[in-house]
Every structure is written in structure tokens, then in C-alpha cells.
Simulated assay, not measured.
Amino acid sequence: MSKAYWIAAYRAVKNADALAAYGKLAGPAIQGGGGRFLARGVPAQVYEQGLQERTIVIEFDSLEQAVATHDGAAYQAALEALGDAADRDIRIIEAS
């Protein structure tokens, strides 16, 4: 079974308070689903079309675990708290 990586790239943050509320719920939901935060923060360097915005990389033991965490009730509650406070690009990929 291949590991999976959840990558979140923030394009814009419109409401820092809502983002903080999301973070309080999302972190425990992701860790509860088996996710391990590998990196999070503003990039040290960007290239090509990269944005100098917050990026997060989370490792899961499987694609199924990552998808189940995203689609689960705890993370969905975090998304409700986030609302439209940020423009993000979320991708879940399997390791090769």
C-alpha cells in the first residue's frame, strides 16, 4: 500500500480569524485520521508560478485514509468554520 500526501497551497487569505478557527478544528481532525504534518508555512523559495503563500504537506499511510479524513465529519466541520476565508488548492496524491 502506497503512502499518500495531502498538499494544501493557499492562494489568498481573506479572513485570518476564520482561518484560525479552521486550524483549531482541522489539525486534530487530520491527526485523528492518521495524518502527519511534514511541512507547513510560507515557502522559503518559489519558482515559476509559485506563490509566497502558506503551504502544507501531510503524510498518510494510504490514499483511502487521506480521502476518508478529508470527507469525514470532523474535517468537514473544520471546512464549515473556514467558509470562504481562504482560496486554496488541495491535492491528495499517492506516492509512487
Rank of each mutant, 00 (worst) to 15 (best):
R40D: 01
A9I: 03
Y22P: 02
I7K: 05
R11T: 02
Y22E: 03
G32L: 06
Y47R: 12
Q49W: 07
L82T: 02
G72K: 12
A44I: 11
D61E: 15
D89Q: 13
A77P: 08
D17V: 01
L19V: 12
E53G: 08
D84V: 05
E64V: 11
P43D: 03
H70Y: 15
A95F: 09
A29H: 06
L25E: 07
A77D: 14
A73E: 14
V67R: 14
V42S: 12
A4D: 09
A8Q: 10
A9K: 14
D71R: 14
W6R: 15
R88I: 14
K3N: 12
A12T: 10
V67M: 15
S2N: 14
D84I: 01
L38F: 01
A8N: 12
P28T: 08
R88T: 10
Q49D: 15
K24Y: 00
L19H: 05
P43F: 04
Q76F: 00
A26D: 01
D89G: 07
V42N: 13
A68E: 14
A39R: 02
G27A: 11
A85M: 01
A26V: 01
A20L: 03
E80G: 08
A81T: 03
P28V: 01
K24M: 07
K24A: 09
E64C: 06
Q45W: 09
A77H: 07
V46N: 15
D17E: 13
Y10T: 11
S96G: 08
A18M: 04
